[in-house]
Design a protein around this nucleic acid. Sequence first.
DNA 1: TTTTGTTTGTACAATATTTCACAATCTCTA
DNA 2: TAGAGATTGTGAAATATTGTACAAACAAAA
Lengths: 234, 234
Amino acid sequence: MNNNRSAPEPTIARIALYLRCLRSAMKDGDTTLSSADIEKRTGISSGQVRKDLSFFGEFGKPGLGYSVDELSQRLAQIMRLDRPQDIMIVGAGNLGSALAGYTGFTESDFHLVAIYDNNFSKIGRRVWDLDILDIELMEELNGEMGVQIGMIATPAPVAQGVADRMVRSGVRVILNFSPTRVSVPKGVIVRNVDLTQELQILCYYLPAGGFAEDSFTTISSDAAKNIEDEVLGF
Amino acid sequence: MNNNRSAPEPTIARIALYLRCLRSAMKDGDTTLSSADIEKRTGISSGQVRKDLSFFGEFGKPGLGYSVDELSQRLAQIMRLDRPQDIMIVGAGNLGSALAGYTGFTESDFHLVAIYDNNFSKIGRRVWDLDILDIELMEELNGEMGVQIGMIATPAPVAQGVADRMVRSGVRVILNFSPTRVSVPKGVIVRNVDLTQELQILCYYLPAGGFAEDSFTTISSDAAKNIEDEVLGF
DNA sequence: TTTTGTTTGTACAATATTTCACAATCTCTA
DNA sequence: TAGAGATTGTGAAATATTGTACAAACAAAA
C-alpha cells in the first residue's frame, strides 16, 4: 500500500487534527505548544505527536515546544491547506444539499464552486447560493473551473459513472459517500465515507463483547458547557 | 488499543463490507461464494477474507466456498445486525436532517426513533415522520425508548454536553459527526466521522503543481452507465 | 556563566495487521 | 470408489504502526 516514502496515512490523518488543534490554540492566545500540550488537547500521545511531526522536519525547540504560528503555517503548507481549495459535489439530494450547506468546510477554507445532478427537476434550482448544474456538462464546465476535489453524494448504482465523469473532467481526489466502492485510474485517490458501515461497526461493540476504547480524560467538558449556554440552536 | 482477544477493528470494518457483498450476491442469485469471488466483488484479498472470517469460526467448505445464505446469517448475528436497531439523532440542522432522511440506514435495518434539538424554534417541528424533541427530555424519554445508538450532528462546542447527556440516557455507542473529540466513560464507544478532516487528508494527496499525466485507462464501467440511464434522479 | 529543569528528536522495542504458502479437506466426475 | 481439481483454515514471515526511553539541545533563573 504505502510503497513510497510518504508519511503513513494515519500520520496524515493526525496532522489534520494537529492543525485544528493549533488554530484553536491560536484563538486561545497560546503562542507556544509542547507535544504534551497537544496531547492534552487532542488525546494523541506526545510521543506520537513528535514522531508524526518528525516525518516532515524539525519544527520544535527543545525546552520550549512548538511555535503555534510557525507550526500551523508549515503543516498547512504540507497539507496544501495554505490556500483555498475548490470542491464540487455531485448529487443534490438530502445528503448532497446538507454537505453543500456544511459550514465546517467553509471555515476550513474549502470553497464549494459547483453542485451537479442528473435530475431535470433539480437542475437549475438553487442550493444555498449555487445553481444545480447538469451533470452532462461537467466535462465542459470543469474545463473552465478546474476543480480537483469531488464529493459523490449519489445512490450507489450511479456512483461509478459519476466517478468516471469526474476523472474525465480533471478531478484528482474523490470523497465518496455512496455505499459502494468505485474504481479509478492510478493516480486518482478515493476515500470512502460509508455511513451505514460506521453504524454497523458500532453495532458490533454494543453488547458485552465490547471493550473500552481511548477514554482519555475529559478534554474540555467545562468549556463546552459554558459555550452551550450561549449557543441557541444546533 | 485492542487489548483483549476480540477481532481487530479493521476486521470488523471489513466484515460489514462482506455482509453487504453477500446480500448483493444473494440478489444476483448466487448461492455460494469463494473467498476469491469475494475478492472480485470487494477488492479485499482472498487471504484477508479467509483470515477475517476465521476470527469467528469455520464457515466455509474446502473445494466449495461459503454458503451465501449461511454466512450472511452468521455474520449478521456476530455484528448484531440480525434484528432492527434503534437509533437517535441529536441536532436537527442540515446534517442531522439529512441523516434522518438517509435511506441507507433504513435499508440496513436501522430504525430512527428520535431526533432531538435544543432550539425552541425547531422543537415540535417535523423532520420526515418524526417530531423534533426537546433535548432536555432525553433522559426521561429514553428511559422508555431505550435507544443505545446515538448520532451527534451538532456544532462542536455543544458536542461534549450532548455526549454526556446521551450516556446518562443509556446510549452505549456514539457516531460523532461534530469536528471535535468527545470523551466518554469507559465502556461507551465513540466513532468520529470528521468531514472536514476527510477533505483535508485528500488535499495532502493532491498532486503538487502541474503533474505528468500517467493516467491512460479511463475505467469506464459499462454496467454503471446502463444503470445510470434507468435511474432518473440522485 | 553555571545550574536546573524542560522538551525535542530518534533509536530501539513492542504491537498490530497483512501477506504468503501449503497441508488438509471437500467436491465432482468417471 | 478413486483421482483430479478447488478452496479452506492457519502458522509463519513480512510490514506497518505505536510505545518507550534517553541523549542532546535549549530556556530560564541564579
